[in-house]
Amino acid sequence: MTVQSQSQLQSESSSTAAIYFAILGIVTTAFGLADLLVTAGGAEFVYGTAILEIPNDIFRGGWGGLVVLSAGLFYLSGAKNIGEIHQFAKVAMGSILIWIMAGSDIFAMITESIPGGEDGSWFNTLDGFLAMYAPPYAPAVLLLPFSLVVLYYIYHRD
């Protein structure tokens, strides 16, 4: 009896989580597929108001797209029955992949923003430095804040 009620309790609180990560999974998978399609197509894709920029090179778009796609699939496969530890681990893994991707992209931005460029001075100007961090962003960077939600569930699992 107690076991049953416990799992019921868990399932109630985790139903929101399941819905959240299912949606995140769909979006992430779509981003991953878009990455791969844009790379295959060759032209870079920037969304209207310039928030989203999908890279088209074989490294960030192709290889990276594959990683984003896997992250999406991790979310999707883990969203069902999320209260179960192995399922939840998949969701956590999805987020970890997003962190690797976003971390790589952000680190790349940082390293590009510091030096002054081939003909410039040693260091970048402040304007040039800040301009590097303006949108558009790669898919993983946009997904980053949404992927952090998993931390809440890691610390509030019990």
Binding site: F59, R60, W63, G64, L66, V67, S70, A71, L73, F74, K90, M93, I96, L97, I100, M101, G103, S104, D105, F107, A108, I110, T111, E112, I114, P115, W122
Partner: peptide, 29 residues
């Protein structure tokens, strides 16, 4: 599940390597 994770880790490894060694240190300075 392990192969996608390995692919992601290699991506991070390679990206950080290129960003730091190539973009920042060698080409940058």
């Amino acid at each position: 599940t392990g192969i996608p994770v390995a692919i992601a880790i290699m991506y991070g490894f390679w990206s950080a390597f290129g960003s730091f060694a190539g973009t920042l240190m060698t080409d940058g300075f």
